[in-house]
């Protein structure tokens, strides 16, 4: 192991050469790769010399020196979602890409961690899915759901990447508009660690595998946002008696108003506003209204049903920020 100072100083002088600008149409065919020459490539070097000795000329060829390129273990993980993914009653779908930035074929173990500092809530990892059909979109029933305990990419060729979906459910306690981040980590199956760590004989082509500058492990954070909705119902009443005043006497008409206020960024589905007819009163036929529009009492095409047993108005799917008001009247017996 000698310390090298100036190796070329030992090379013999170079014959004068003409400084003519030579032009060639180049790009060489070479085996260069974005991530370097492939593991297992043989570097073979041979020099040839020609010379004169007296009146004869001759040539001589050196022995061939050969070096095998070992496998470099490197990986890159990126988040492909630009905006936080929305989690409702359905899980959020976070999209990542995992790229083999080494020079040999390699599979990478995957780990999704929902606990990140600054999280409004910690999501629940429902599943880790490979984008089997490479369309960048999670296709339930088509893309491969990885088995817990065997979370890994397939073997990726150098420079190749795969997309990974992480499905995250909201925990019980999450409130609307809260955000959270999930970290996906990919680690080379052959090994990882401090750059330069070498795994003897584990490389492609029987050489060594060497950990590259990425430590053969990389991660990326993707965000999700809770999109939930809440409902509050308020009931009020106005009385109109036969004398034009507001006394609750027999014959007076009591009009009830039920305001359903939906708040939050999400939606609520399957909403009904249901009320009963108070004892001592009688439903006023045809008095049922939704947002001031009259509804028929019968079970028919419209959203409402009214009668002696009470009222039932179907609101269906309502997005946050909406208020629906149901009104009906009863007569005091």
């Amino acid at each position: 192991m000698n310390t090298y100072l100036s190796p070329l100083s030992r090379a013999a002088g170079i014959a004068g050469c003409s400084l003519v600008a030579l032009s060639v149409t180049a790009p060489l065919a070479n085996t260069a790769h974005a991530t370097g020459v492939l593991a297992g490539t043989l570097i073979e070097n041979t020099a040839t010399a020609t010379y004169q000795s007296g009146s004869t000329t001759g040539s001589v060829t050196s022995n061939k020196v050969t070096v095998k390129v070992d496998e470099l273990l490197d990986v890159a993980v990126a988040t492909l979602s630009t905006a936080p993914a929305t989690a409702t009653s359905e899980p959020a779908v976070l999209i990542y890409s995992v790229t083999n930035s080494g020079n040999g074929p390699e599979a990478f173990n995957l780990a999704a961690d929902p606990k990140t500092s600054g999280n409004g809530f910690d999501g629940t990892i429902k599943s880790v899915v490979l984008d089997s059909n490479s369309n960048g979109v999670y296709d339930p029933g088509v893309d491969t759901v990885l088995t817990a305990g065997a979370l890994a990419t397939p073997v990726l060729a150098p420079d190749k990447s795969t997309k990974v979906f992480v499905l995250v459910d909201l925990p019980a306690g999450a409130t609307d508009a809260q955000t959270s981040q999930v970290r996906l980590t990919a680690t080379a199956q052959t090994g990882s660690g401090t750059p330069g760590t070498s795994f003897s004989g584990k490389g492609e082509g029987g050489g060594d595998a060497v950990v590259g500058l990425t430590t053969a492990s990389a991660n990326s954070l993707a965000a999700l946002i809770a999109s939930l909705a809440n409902i509050s119902l308020s009931k009020s009443a106005t009385i109109l008696d036969p004398f034009g005043t507001a006394k609750p006497v027999p014959g007076a008409i009591v009009t009830y108003s039920l305001a359903a206020k939906i708040t939050g960024s999400g939606t609520l589905d399957g909403l009904h506003v249901i009320d009963t007819i108070p004892d001592g009163t009688t439903y006023v036929p045809g008095s049922l209204k939704l947002d001031s529009a009259a509804l028929t009492d019968g079970v028919d095409g419209d959203a409402g049903v009214g009668g002696a047993s009470g009222i039932d108005v179907t609101l269906g799917k309502i997005t946050g920020g909406t208020t629906k008001t149901v009104a009906f009247s009863v007569k005091i017996n």
Binding site: Y4, P7, A15, H33, T35, G36, V37, I43, N45, T46, A47, T48, A49, T50, Y51, Q52, S53, G54, S62, V65, V67, K68, V69, D70, E71, L72, N103, S198, G207, D208, V210, G212
Partner: peptide
């Protein structure tokens, strides 16, 4: 022993004239 992309290699070719007379115009091509 272990060579990966980005490594620097030093290739050396040593020559020796075993003959009894001088060798001239010696051109090593690599």
């Amino acid at each position: 022993k272990v060579v990966i992309p980005g490594d620097h290699l030093l290739f050396t070719t040593r020559y020796h004239n075993d003959g009894a007379q001088a060798v001239t115009n010696f051109v090593v091509t690599n």
